[in-house]
Design a protein around this nucleic acid. Structure first.
Lengths: 110, 110
DNA sequence: ATCGTATATCGTCGATTAACGATAAGAGAT
DNA sequence: ATCTCTTATCGTTAATCGACGATATACGAT
């Protein structure tokens, strides 16, 4: 029997990839605090506007956030459902991995 | 006040980055099952040996796994401590993010 | 209709990633 | 000492990432 899952691992990897940059983590933290922000993020992180826009796009594509256009600006928010999905995919695995023994019995190991 | 954390976000991002590939997730799942494997992973995933070796290096560098050389082979295992670190860094954030409202009050939003 | 603001997109650059085959290095066994 | 097996590393390739400035687009206000 092969390792379980593998189906949703693609999505898990995609969301992890979007998380794999300090600037994007910072953006998520910011959105968690005051929800709905656009170019204010540019001030908070000291990055060019185009760079921030790209990071937002990555987060949006991966599903972490949603963007609602509000006149000339776009209002970004965390997508709680996707956060929930991510937790549901990741946490059972992490729990299992944390208790994995350092070296199991049926193995070709020292 | 800026967003909290940012200190360990670098490490969080690093570990997330290592997680951001289906093959590496598969490797972690495998190691969680039977611990201590080396080239058996090459069979499980259908990838070249050098590719698997690289993925193992990425996981090791990020701290997810440890490698103990055992004669001619190397025995890899999950590092429960790092898994724990990762959980400790990530889960509080995820909990917070999941309950973040879609659009908060003090915001320039619709 | 035009101006100003806000944001997305384009094009570019250097750096990194992912994959592979080929080669080197280490440890046992003959 | 040599052969074999296992794994790490090297070199290459195409693709992607991260950052930026410049430009285009969209909207609201004048």
């Amino acid at each position: 029997m092969p390792a379980p899952s593998t189906v949703s691992d693609a999505r898990l990897a995609t969301m992890a990839k979007a998380l794999a940059h300090p600037a994007r983590i910072a953006i998520l933290r910011t959105l968690a605090r005051r929800s709905c922000i656009c170019g204010e993020i540019v001030e908070e992180l000291q990055l060019a506007q185009s760079t921030v826009s790209q990071h937002l796009k990555v987060l949006k594509t991966a599903g972490w956030i949603t963007g609602v256009i509000d006149g000339p600006r776009t209002c970004y928010s965390l997508d709680p459902e996707s956060v929930s999905d991510f937790r549901f995919m990741l946490e059972p695995a992490l729990e299992q991995w944390e208790v994995a023994c350092t070296c199991s019995a049926d193995s070709s190991c020292p």
